[in-house]
Amino acid sequence: MNNRRSTFLVSAMAFGFAFLYIPILSLIVFSFNESKLVTVWAGFSTKWYGALLQNEQILGAAWLSVRIAFMNATVAVCLGTLAGFVLARMGRFRGRLLLTGMTTAPLVMPEVITGLSLLLLFVALESMIGWPQGRGVTTITIAHITFSMAYVAVIIQSRLSSVDESVEEAAQDLGARPAKVFFIITLPIISPALVSGWLLAFTMSLDDLVIASFVSGPGSSTLPMVVFSKVRLGVSPEINALATIIVLLVASGIVAAGLVMNQAEKRRQRDVQMAVAANE
């Protein structure tokens, strides 16, 4: 490779990664700052972590967000897997184009529009059929499921279109019923995608401010809503401490999931190789 070009590429990459990581690192570093002025260093301290753990409002909101994220991720994986499976394996059917549209549009739809439209739906439903009564955890969860199932569907669809359909067809030819094929063959093949879909849906729900603000009601402020109202008033070292905890949790979760999936993938490839070798 051309030498000058590779220098350019390496420095572009270095600059890009510095751009991505310096803000996160600065959040972490200043969470250990003694001073309340977040950006002026005044010595090492962990007092903001103590203050964070005393802050009932943040802790309550965090617990609410985690519960919503958990429910959301679980339902979104089920619905998103169905949608991805339908799009990847069920061939043509009436209305396929509309389903494709409805699973890709939420990926790019501005959040203010999704939030507003869902709120208007919930208000209209409440006046028509009396459900959902008021707004809160249920409405936030439904809203989150709707946009995160689209992400899951895309992940599942791309995973399914990259694996060979012949194994599933072979099982069907041997008389397995479609439901059995799905649970015995398809599901194990896409299990890495299920894991990453679940994690993605979980973090997206945990992260969402705009949609939750539209569809939440009194007494159901999620963590991003509390953080946003604090951050609007200026920087606060407690938020830095919170950010550090989230970054560390996410980073260790991702690295662990990556290692586990890597090993599962290696094992699968080894099994395939052994099966091929046994046949020869």
Binding site: I24, T39, D207, L209, P224, V231, I239, A243, I246
Partner: peptide
């Protein structure tokens, strides 16, 4: 993984980080 990692951490907090910068 390094590109994806920031995407998984809170969007709101990453925007907040820029205020300090």
């Amino acid at each position: 993984m390094l590109v994806i990692l920031p995407f998984w951490t809170s969007f709101l907090l990453r925007v907040y980080a820029w205020i300090g910068i």
